[in-house]
Structure formats: structure tokens, C-alpha cells
Design a protein around this nucleic acid. Structure first.
Lengths: 338, 338
DNA sequence: TTGAAAGCGCTAACAT
DNA sequence: ATGTTAGCGCTTTCAA
């Protein structure tokens, strides 16, 4: 069996209360007592039992991170950032992936048994939307990430979707592009990144007085390289003319890049391409990919901070807050015409 | 406060033992009693407190996964596979990243407070080697992943490093390549993937009667795209002749691919390139990248299974086991000459 | 400044 | 077939 407070207390010749006080640096302990206890702890190699502490205190010291898929580079990088932010506050992170692409799976994870042992949840919303905010009234403190729910019952941290894709589009317009594809639309979707990024695209064109051609808005199923490549094959086969691509995320852009090059077009001379998310890979493609940096570390830092505040505060005492990170356009070779 | 066994017992008019039995599907409960208890559970929305259960049973229901870096695609994909395997057994996964590239950081994570609340640890060894196995004598059941420690005190699951790079090299030899670069060596390293993969490369050449030229073995600092690109720039600048590249992982191969193409060489016609790990990205590069599939799902499945066995068995009762996954070469465009 | 004791919610040995 | 009860290791009043 492992060493308990009692063992330490016995060796030090004090009560367990005193040992506990020493462990917690509580004030009002005579230096010599403290030294004796510390020595006993050292000698026995005592380590507090976190489970027992959790049972007693009602806290586990863990936060849950609910994300769609760790295999997706964006979320893997986000998870890394969240872990860093959490560790800085002495918390650990329990990552859960949403198993299916539907509301039932998403709610199942949030309500599931695993999220029982966390003090709070960071949730990157996948399919839920404003109609479902009622379902988010969990007993556990919650902070939302992503772009599907804005008027939820709790804090929300997001990236500048509209401003980002607007900046991306303006960047291509500045290069002289006039027939810019918007790659990654989800037709019929109202909430969600696809809708917001499409809005930014439209705003940029309108502001520049460039007509918005519906045929330049390219729908895709998913946001993987595969989808970007497939969609671009169809575009090229159809003979549609274009001179720039604003892709709604980096994998889409990389998939499109590949097909565009295969078709014998030059990037950025014939077609300028820009992505969104600034995943690591964009630095190493050929050509390197311009993109929008979503401020992942900033998102993680704010979200964890807010969650910690909520965990420490009485339920309902904090009004929902909203934070959007700053836009930063990262220009690389795919949009740099010499 | 939350609902406890007592609340349910009171409502159902039974003792907490009976409720506990129902929750655990223990045999010997009259159907009508069970129905009554189930109804009470439903009515009150009772959820067992996992912390209390953990304190009582000495199990937490969690396993720890200690990996170098979630931002690395290989480990992110491995983590996903481990989570899937763990969930199938009703366990959750606590991921920890090793903060620094040194033995102290690595041991700190293994011994750290967070690994206290797991029943067992899956550890992808980063810097420890055979000299350090003594340090792995943890109180917690442990299964090792990776290629640095083979004669450790516990189970070890690995991929076919030697056989994989040998197969990769043989594949290029089969295409007619005779001056094949080995990209990714770590000079002086004995344990670790780099040494093993270099051995496989040498074995293939020797078996084919092709001389091993030391200048074709290219050392790199790290195994990122950046390093592959930098090393290849130096190679090309030096005027060294080569007609194939066996890269020791996929990012190295992708970095090299980029530089080779920039230099005006054709892939695979002038230079055939093959990587190692089969990360998702290899399906989408231009050209797509041939690689060695390390059997990630198989690794996760076996490792979690063995860890569960160790958790359930008395300490020291299971002799160390070893499992190496099967080699599978994935041929894609970068080595397909028509 | 330190000690004694109750109890967090659960499991399991022991009774009935 | 079901009930009683003693802890798991810790925190936390309440006393001394």
C-alpha cells in the first residue's frame, strides 16, 4: 500500500492535520514542527493521493477538451496549446474526440461518464448550433470554442473568421486577381466557419466593387485535402476560369494546390492561393502556402483562463463573455508575385 | 449536491448495496427489485461518482499516454489510435507531452503528479536508452513504445524499423536506383529509430551487392520537414550524385521532395523517394509519397491490451513481452515509374 | 499551534 | 436476495 498522511504523522509524531497543513503551506505552523514533518515526508516518499483529495474537495484538477478529431492538424495543434496553458495553471487535460459527425455523438461526449471527472470543459463545437444551446446547460463549467454558437449560455472564444477571409480575399484582390474561387462552402449552412468565411469573402469583393459570381463559390463535403483536390479537379474539368483561390482551411488549399499544379498552371503567377489556419505544414509545401493565422495560443490561453474563473465562481455568477483573436495574414510564396 | 447511492436507495426503498448491485449488474437480484431501482435511478438522474469509486477500488479507469509531441503528426495519429483502443475497453486516456528533449524531462513526466491518477502508462520513449531501464521501475504498470529500449523491464511494442527501411531500400533498388541516399541519420546514436533504419538500409544494399558509400548517409538534426529540406539543399549544392532517397520518416521525405523538385529534378524519374510512417499527408503531396506503414492501429491495440493485462495482474507476475508489427510498403507516385 | 473526528460516495466483506 | 458496516485517504470543522 502507498504511504498516507497517517504514516507521515506517526513518523513525525504529529497529527494528520498538521501534516496536511504542512503539505498545503498553511500558515501557523512552528518552524521546527514543519521541518520535522517535511523530513518525514521525504523519508517515506509520501505523495498525496489525488483521488482522495478529489473526493473530499469535489475538484479533480482536470479540465476536459472536447474536439472533433486529433488527426486533424488544427485540433492537434490546438490541443498542444491548451495543454500548455492548462499545465501553467497546474491542471491536466483530458482530451475527448467526438466520435461521429452528428449532434447525438457530440452531446454524448459532453454528457458522457468521462466528462464526469473534470472540473470544467473546453468544447470545440462541431455540429451543435444556436438551436441547441439549451442542451449546453451542463452542471460543469463550460467554455465554447469555434464558430457555430455565438449566443450560448457561456463564454465563447473564437478566431476572426469573417475578418480573416476578408483579409485573405483583399490580399488576392491586391495582387490583381478578379475571378477568385471561394473553396470550401457548405451550402445551406448558416452557423459555422464555412458560412462566416464565405461572408468575409463576399464582403471583400463587394467593398472592392468586384461582382460576386455564384459559380465561383465551390462547395465541398469535408475540409480535408481530398475534398480540396476533388473539387478543383471538377472545377478545372468544367473549364471555369479563375485566377485566385481563397480556401477555407489549409488542407483544402493544399489539396487544391496540388491539382492546380498538375493541371500545368503556375502558382502564384497564374493562380494565387491562400489558406486559413496556419498549420505547420503550410511552411513546407511547394510553393509555401500563404494563410491566415488564427491565433491558436491566444485562444488556448484565454479559454483556459476563463474556464478556471468559472470553475472558481458560483454557477451563474459570470455573464457570458466573447473573445475574438486578432487577424494576422501570413504571406508566403503562393501569393507572392515577384 | 449530486445524487448518491443513498438517495436512490431511499427512493427505491432498498439498501445501497442493492443499488450498487443493480448498477454493476451483479447477479441475484429479483427482477422487480431491479426494476424499482432502475426507475429510481432514472427519476433522480443518478450518475455514479467515479472519484469515489476510484478511491475505494484503487483504480482510476485512466491510462496515461506519454509522448514527445502532439504537434508531430505521427504522435497525433498514434494518440488517436490509442484513444480508440482504450475506449473500447472502457478506459480513458490522459495524454502527456514530454516538455524537453532530455532524460530529466522525460523522467519528470513519468514520475510526475499527473501520472499518479492513472492505472497504467503507455510510454513512447524519447531519450532514455538501455542504460536507463533502472529508472523505469515504476510502481505503475508500464508498456513501452518506440525503438530506444528493447531489453527493458516490461512489455515493448514497436514497429519494424530494420525490416521497414530494408524493404524501402530494396524497393528503390528494384527500380534500378544505385546511389540511394539514407536521409535522417543521427551520427553516434546506437539506440533509436535512426540507427535501426540505417541498419535496414545497409542490409538491403549489402544483400544486393551494392556498395555502401558513407557519403550517401545524410545526417540531420531533427526529423522535421525543415531538416529534410535543409539537408537536401546541402547535398545538391555539394554536387553529390544520387538517384534515390530513403528518408527515415515522412516529414524528412516531404522536405527533401520539395527541394529536389525545386532543383529541377523529376520525381520519380530522376530521383525516387520513399518515406516512413505513412502519415496522412503522404497521400496528398505532389507527387504522392511512397512510405512504410508502421501499423499504428496494431501498435495501439496490442499495447493497450498488454497494459490492461498488467494492470489486472500482480506486480512482477508477467514477464516482459515484445511485439513488432508487420512490414507493409505503401507504393505511391514518388516511386512509381511508368 | 495542534489534535480528534466526521464524512466525501463508493465497494466489499460479512450478516441476515 | 438483501441489508449493515467498515473503511479508501483526504479535508475540514470544532476543540483543546
Amino acid at each position: 500500500m502507498s504511504i498516507t498522511l497517517h504514516d507521515v504523522a506517526r513518523l513525525a509524531g504529529v497529527s494528520i492535520k498538521t501534516v496536511s497543513n504542512v503539505v498545503h503551506d498553511s500558515p501557523g505552523i512552528r518552524p521546527e514542527t514543519r521541518a520535522r514533518v517535511l523530513a518525514a515526508i521525504e523519508e517515506l516518499g509520501y505523495r498525496p493521493n489525488l483521488t482522495a483529495r478529489g473526493l473530499r474537495s469535489g475538484r479533480t484538477g482536470a479540465i476536459g477538451l472536447v474536439i472533433p478529431d486529433l488527426r486533424n492538424a488544427y485540433f492537434a495543434e490546438l490541443a498542444g496549446a491548451v495543454m500548455t496553458a492548462a499545465h501553467a495553471r497546474g491542471l491536466y487535460v483530458l482530451i475527448e474526440q467526438i466520435s461521429g459527425y452528428d449532434k447525438a455523438s457530440e452531446l454524448a461526449v459532453l454528457r458522457g461518464p468521462r466528462m464526469q471527472l473534470v472540473d470544467g470543459i473546453l468544447h470545440s463545437v462541431l455540429t451543435l448550433d444556436d438551436d441547441d444551446v439549451g442542451m449546453l446547460d451542463l452542471p460543469t463549467p463550460l467554455v465554447l470554442l469555434g464558430d457555430r454558437i455565438f449566443d450560448g449560455p457561456t463564454d465563447h472564444v473564437t478566431m476572426p473568421n469573417v475578418a480573416g477571409s476578408r483579409a485573405a480575399t483583399e490580399h488576392l484582390l491586391g495582387l490583381g486577381c478578379r475571378r477568385i474561387l471561394a473553396l470550401g462552402a457548405h451550402p445551406g449552412e448558416v452557423a459555422g466557419s464555412a458560412a462566416l468565411r464565405l461572408r468575409g469573402y463576399g464582403e471583400a469583393l463587394s467593398a472592392a466593387g468586384v461582382p460576386v459570381h455564384p459559380e465561383l463559390v465551390i462547395a465541398v463535403q469535408d475540409w480535408q485535402r481530398f475534398d480540396g483536390a476533388a473539387a478543383m479537379r471538377a472545377v478545372i474539368a468544367s473549364g471555369l476560369e479563375f485566377d485566385g483561390i481563397v480556401a477555407f482551411n489549409d488542407p483544402l488549399a493544399l489539396g487544391a494546390l496540388r491539382v492546380v499544379l498538375e493541371a500545368g498552371l503556375r502558382v502564384p503567377e497564374d493562380v494565387a492561393i491562400i489558406g486559413f489556419d496556419d498549420i505547420d505544414e503550410t511552411r513546407y509545401s511547394l510553393p509555401t502556402l500563404s494563410t491566415i493565422d488564427p491565433g491558436r495560443d491566444e485562444i488556448a490561453e484565454i479559454a483556459v483562463g476563463w474556464l478556471v474563473e468559472r470553475i472558481g465562481a458560483p454557477r451563474g455568477s459570470i455573464a457570458p463573455r466573447e473573445h475574438e483573436t486578432r487577424v494576422r495574414l501570413v504571406q508566403r510564396e503562393s501569393t507572392t508575385r515577384s
